[in-house]
Design a protein around this nucleic acid. Structure first.
Lengths: 108, 108
DNA sequence: CTGATGTGCAACTGTTTAGTTGCACATAGG
DNA sequence: CCTATGTGCAACTAAACAGTTGCACATCAG
């Protein structure tokens, strides 16, 4: 997963309303932006823009069905970003332990 | 980990400059904002504000040493947020699989 | 063909926030 | 005591962004 993609996923998940859209979409069968907006405290256009952002980083997928566009959650980037974070955290933990051991040797 | 904390961690990591500060701090021994700013393309004040944000969600810790304040990475919230994301992704994956099985039964 | 429902696009507003600069205060060293 | 260096606080600017509203276009039903 590229760093740019991680950047986009973080930026997408940083907004509370956008996470709300994502969670609401996760609770439903594939549905349109209009249907989704009916159960949310923002306008349809706002939901559409959020869905576009989420689609740009592949957190949702969309396909036309007749005259409406159906959206669906796609959890793959979430998993990838989570493992990226875990790797980073592990690296820092190792470095911190190395620093502490170094401090112990110096203090002895 | 509370949802509010997850919110803060996402908001903190969403900014590229702030991730740069965090990564740079992870590569160094504990150091001050002034030292850190010397190796970054932004002013000291900008670094200070980023470090305050990072400290608000416990991604870094700080302590006074004489006349300077030393900062250090603290990976715990990162690990917690990563596992939160993994859990969410797993939930959605299960729901998607349930929907597909339902579609198969309906199509038969 | 006509009306109804749904989507797409553009302009506008208000708010948030990253970044800078300037200055006041505190602390170590001569 | 006095100067260096480092930190903390406040005001200001510029850019990004969420949200809204209005209107044009497309699609299905009668």
């Amino acid at each position: 997963m590229s760093v740019l993609a991680v950047d986009q996923v973080f930026a997408a998940l940083a907004d509370p309303t956008r996470r709300l859209v994502l969670e609401e979409l996760g609770r439903r069968p594939p549905c349109s932006a209009t249907t989704l907006a009916a159960g949310l405290p923002v306008s349809r256009q706002a939901v559409v823009r959020h869905l576009q952002v989420l689609r740009d980083c592949d957190l949702v997928t969309s396909h036309r069905a007749g005259k409406e566009v159906l959206f669906e959650v796609s959890p793959a980037p979430l998993t990838a970003t989570a493992s990226w974070m875990t790797t980073l955290a592990d690296t820092w933990t190792e470095r911190l332990q190395a620093l502490k051991q170094q401090a112990e040797r110096a203090g002895r």
